[in-house]
Design a protein around this nucleic acid. Structure first.
Length: 851
RNA sequence: GGGCGCAUAGCUCAGUUGGCUAGAGCGCUUCCCUUACAAGGAAGAUGUCGGGGGUUCGAGUCCCUCUGCGCCCACCA
């Protein structure tokens, strides 16, 4: 037990207590507790690609309050920490940090030293290095970043068990990711397919539906005539992508469109290239768009893919993986005409094609500028193209109504906080239009653990992939050989080749409950924590992380991966706009921790209702600091009265009606806060606790402090001391989830063990006993308030003596006022108090003259 | 086009099954160095609960409708 300081302070308590919790193992998970006594959390692994920002502070605080409440409620809390260091963000950061870029054609250099470590000059050209060298640098930087993150999260006071950590690129994650995938393949839940795929031409990788977003971009309608093959005039189409004319395979109109019905089954010739293409009907064609008839290209957008597939149209692809037009003309296209655009970028080609159309009089009118939504990879800078490539997919219901229904149904096994977030999940799952593309043509990721046998011509046999035995995992098919082959057979006819791709980062992070829980690695642990109790996350990644995690759990275990999903909101600028990264980084979390104290920042976060977007507010942090400070001061004050002189039961010791009334009020607060935390509503628990706390400090303590000193009334003094300590202890514990540092500090002055391991308070039951009326004390306090008002209005000090106080009150209130009479006289410095009968509560205050 | 959320004091927000004159904090005004706290304390002013209609003895709360804002999703020629 520590001594009570003369001058309580919040300064420095974070480092002191964080170190203490570390050395005491305060938050260590006890894996011996049976599953029903465990509360397990599927902690979001932050992307380790920069710095922690206020969004992290906000949502991790919310989770931590729940973890702390559950721990105090007697649960063994499994609260691991993961790092998402796998994937593109890390690759980018490594490039920018070391001034290098990955070039798989380079050879490995032993002991390679990068040209820079941090901030290469702007004019520096990234030097190409081998894939293994690049991956080494990824590992190095990720290690550094994770140390910084861990320090900051400890400073935030997260009650994470730091013995349970993982990184999405570490060996255990790679093993889990590959194992889960191989099982998906074996059960037919994953497959590879050569198909048109959304493609980012800068990153040169395929992109999944979930990673795609719309951005408004300027474009222009070009009206172009297609000459009818029978020589009878032309059909005009509108297109925003004239550069794709060479890729045109058909024109399409709605089957009910009378304007075009006569033309279905006939053909036209493409301008410039002279390819004969059919006019076809499909209900996706919209009569009110443009001229009502569209050209189908392979491929301009995802609708083209649908048409191409459903109408069995030929392939005439012209866009390559680098975003440039293929060197050779596709089948049927006039090579001379195509040569003028071969090798150009999409943008350059459009310019050339439009010029050619104008020259040949094939552009009707002027191009009409519009703003229209264009599909982008969420991390990309140029519009997505669609190219054909072989990719791996995991079935997610996008092409199977039964599976889709099953996954929606899994969503109903989860309790959503707030409840309406489930709509977003349903909405997403029901709107899927393809399976989940998991392969990526990148470097820093979990390798796809597959080889392909090569036939006698050296061509891969994709229909018969070679799978490693699970005991070998993790493997890298680019350096490991499949069973039954030797490394010398790599790339040889009759030999094998490794799948060159890696998994999308979501393919691994969709397994966080499995990875953190020790799936197939520590079966005992896994049985104690899975399915998990809580998945906390932001609502913008319901369609990615949340959905993919449910999908993997559904395939592997046939259950939902957790019973609760807690969705946190966004941080908004004070002007209610979504907080931009740049702005969010101006005020760093560490600065705020230093300025206001960690508890104050947590108070701001904890004041936000679950799932509600919340304005960034330093004003709220100031209020939080005030609260934490008050808690220390009132603790010091209450404790200085000393411990009660005996160990009678609470019911026996607290005899004064005012004290019993206060405890009854406290009972209600404890019940409310407990119910709120059980419903994951930390904000409501905080609000109720806080309201009680200020009432306690401003009114109850002021009212009874005279009595605690009063040697004439030892029983009353004992009652007050005991009630004060009872309430203090409850309040400290009620605040502990939100303000872990200040409560621990205050608790340590009169307890030997951590407040965070103390039992969550329960109602004393005072409310059901004599004088256990929570409103009784309020009558006395109302009178006290009127006395205070009289002093304020008289511009006198609150210490001014009241010569006589006449209280008028209905008879029903007289017992309450008599009960508080002594305390009132003390607190108000009242010489004589007369109580008379009257219709309403009122007072006449006569102040004594000033000396 | 489909779905979801929000609208209460100048600002940020509570208001859980409908129930006394609608609450808190910040900000604002006045006063007080009072023995836990001046990074404090006491007191005070402030609202057509977005508009309209309905159910009810009674509606901020339930129903309908309109308006405004925000988010998610959608095949975007």
């Amino acid at each position: 037990m520590a001594n009570i300081p003369d001058k309580p302070t919040l300064d420095g308590i974070e480092d002191r207590w964080a170190a203490q919790w570390d050395s005491d193992g305060t938050y260590r998970f006890d894996a011996s507790v049976p599953r029903e006594g465990v509360f397990s959390i599927d902690t979001p692994p932050p992307t380790v690609s920069g710095s922690l920002h206020m969004g992290h502070v906000f949502s991790y605080t919310h989770t931590d309050t729940i973890a702390r409440y559950q721990r105090m409620s007697g649960k063994a809390v499994f609260y691991p920490m993961g790092w998402d260091d796998n994937g593109l963000p890390t690759e980018r950061r490594v490039q920018n940090y070391y001034g290098v870029r990955c070039d798989p054609s380079q050879h490995y250099v032993d002991g390679f030293e990068p040209p820079f470590r941090g901030d290469p000059p702007k004019n520096h050209h990234a030097i190409p290095i081998s894939r293994p060298n690049f991956l080494e640098l990824c590992d190095e930087l990720v290690e550094l970043d994770e140390q910084v993150f861990e320090a900051l999260l400890k400073r935030l006071g997260l009650s994470v068990d730091w013995n349970h950590q993982y990184a999405t690129i570490d060996e255990r994650s790679r093993r889990a990711s590959q194992r889960a995938f191989l099982r998906n393949v074996t059960r037919g839940e994953a497959y590879s397919q050569e198909a048109p795929t959304l493609w980012d031409i800068d990153f040169r990788t395929a992109v999944a539906q979930a990673e795609m977003e719309d951005r408004d971009r300027p474009g222009a309608y070009h009206t172009i005539p297609f000459a009818r093959s029978d020589g009878n005039g032309a059909i005009e189409i509108d297109t925003t992508r004239p550069e794709l004319l060479a890729a045109c395979v058909a024109l399409v109109a709605h089957p009910d469109d009378e304007r075009y019905q006569p033309h279905f089954g006939t053909t036209v010739r493409t301008p410039l290239y002279g390819v004969e293409v059919p006019i076809v009907a499909h209900e996706l064609a919209q009569p009110d768009k443009g001229t009502g008839i569209a050209m189908i290209c392979t491929f301009g957008d995802t609708t083209d893919v649908t048409w191409w597939r459903e109408l069995n149209l030929p392939m005439r692809a012209i866009i390559g993986r680098d975003g440039r037009l293929h060197a050779d003309a596709p089948d049927g296209v006039d090579p001379a005409a195509y040569a003028t655009i071969a090798g150009l970028t999409v943008k350059q080609a459009q310019k050339v094609v439009v010029e050619q159309l104008v020259e040949q009089g094939l552009l009707i009118g002027e191009p009409r500028g519009i703003q229209h939504p264009v599909k982008f990879y969420e991390r990309g800078d140029r519009p997505l193209e669609i190219v054909t490539s072989r990719q791996w997919y995991i079935r997610n219901g996008g092409r199977d109504a039964d599976l889709r229904g099953a996954l929606v149904s899994r969503g109903t096994e989860v309790t959503w906080h707030p409840a309406h977030m489930q709509h977003r999940y349903d909405n997403w799952v029901e709107g899927l239009n393809g399976d989940w593309l998991v392969s990526r043509q990148r470097f820093f990721g979990v390798p796809i653990p597959i080889w392909y046998a090569l036939d006698e011509h050296g061509e891969p046999r994709y229909d018969e992939p070679l799978l490693p035995d699970e005991s070998r995992l993790p493997i890298d098919p680019s350096t490991d050989a499949p069973e039954g082959y030797t490394e010398s057979q790599r790339g040889e006819p009759g030999g094998f080749t490794g799948d060159p791709d890696v998994f999308d980062t979501w393919a691994t992070s969709s397994l966080t409950p499995q990875i953190a829980g020790g799936w197939e690695e520590d079966n005992d642990l896994f049985e104690h924590v899975f399915p998990m109790d809580m998945r906390p996350q932001a609502h913008d990644i319901i369609r990615t992380w949340l959905f993919s995690t449910i999908t993997r759990s559904h395939h592997e275990f046939g259950c939902a991966p957790w019973s609760h999903a807690a969705l946190s909101g966004w941080i908004l600028d004070p002007d209610r706009k979504k907080m931009s990264k740049s702005k969010g980084n101006v005020v760093t979390p560490l600065d705020l921790f230093e300025t206001y104290g960690t508890d104050a920042v947590r108070y701001w976060a904890g004041s936000a209702r679950p799932g509600v977007d919340t304005a960034f507010s330093e004003e709220q942090m100031k209020v939080g600091r005030k609260l934490a400070n008050k808690l220390l001061n009132v603790t010091k004050f209450v404790l200085q009265f000393g411990a009660p002189s005996d160990d009678r039961s609470l019911d026996d010791a607290v005899t004064d009606p005012i004290d019993r009334s206060m405890l009854a009020k406290l009972d209600g607060v404890i019940d409310d806060a407990t119910a709120a935390f059980d419903a994951f509503d930390y904000a409501r628990a905080l609000e109720r606790t806080e309201a009680f706390f200020w009432w306690f400090c401003d009114n109850y303590v002021e009212l009874v402090k005279g009595r605690t000193y009063d040697e004439q009334r030892p029983q009353g003094a004992e009652s007050a001391k005991r009630a004060l300590r009872e309430a203090l202890g409850a309040v400290q514990r009620l605040f502990a989830p939100i303000l872990p540092f200040a409560t621990e500090e205050a608790w340590s002055w009169w307890n030997d063990s951590s407040v965070h391991l103390a039992p969550w308070p329960t109602a004393s039951g005072t409310a059901a006993t004599p004088f256990g009326d929570p409103t009784l004390a309020d009558v006395t306090i109302e009178v006290l308030t009127q006395v205070r008002r009289a002093k304020t209005e008289a511009k006198r000090s609150q210490r001014a003596v009241v010569a006589t106080l006449v209280v008028t009150a209905p008879l029903t209130l007289h017992p309450a006022i008599d009960a508080g009479r002594h305390d009132l006289v003390d607190a108000g410095s009242i010489r004589t108090l007369d109580l008379v009968d009257g219709a309403t509560l009122g007072t006449v205050v006569t102040l004594a003259d000033e000396d």
